[in-house]
Amino acid sequence: MTRSATPGQTVGPFFHYALPYPGDRELVPPGTAGAVLLHGTVRDGDGAAIPDALLEIWQADPDGRVLQRAGSLRRDGFTFTGFGRAATDASGRYSFSTLVPGAVEGGLPFFAVTVFARGLLNRLFTRAYLPLADGAEPDALLRSAGDRAGTLLCVADDHGFRFDVHLQGDGETVFLSYPGHRGD
């Protein structure tokens, strides 16, 4: 028998002294061989930056392995756990220092992303796909997203990858619902 899930609620305005922790956004120390920045801005329906949002990422390692390693909260500087958390700053920006995720079991490589914010009544899920390699075909999700698929793709830049999140409006990010999320 499937039980009804506990409802979510907004993260509210006062999470900053509780959820962020030292090293939260550094899955690898900046400057590590192979380190890239995954960064972007979170915006609202007016295009205004959101200074009180929080993003989490969960990703495979560069070989496409999904790791089950402790240590995300007390990083030792060398264990890659695949999990990171970053609050946005006063200009709505977030960034992670991490490694490039590999493809898992033949899928396209992506960062799994959750978004929390004051004013957002429940968390949102999305995927930040790496830019499609030459000759790579979009997967089922990218195809089904149609002309909005671009919102799911990272843009390569000098630092690594940019992935902006638009909660609403022009270029609204495709957010995901997994089976069972609506009580179905």
């Binding site: 205004a48 999904v66 695949g82 992506f110 004051r118 909660l167 609403q168 495709v174 957010f175 997994y178």
Partner: peptide, 20 residues
């Protein structure tokens, strides 16, 4: 505060895969 901070499009159905 939710006025400009909620998606206006339906959430997109996805089957979890890989790291998810």
């Amino acid at each position: 505060s939710s006025r400009l901070r909620h998606p206006t499009k339906d959430l997109h159905h996805a089957d979890p895969e890989g790291v998810e």
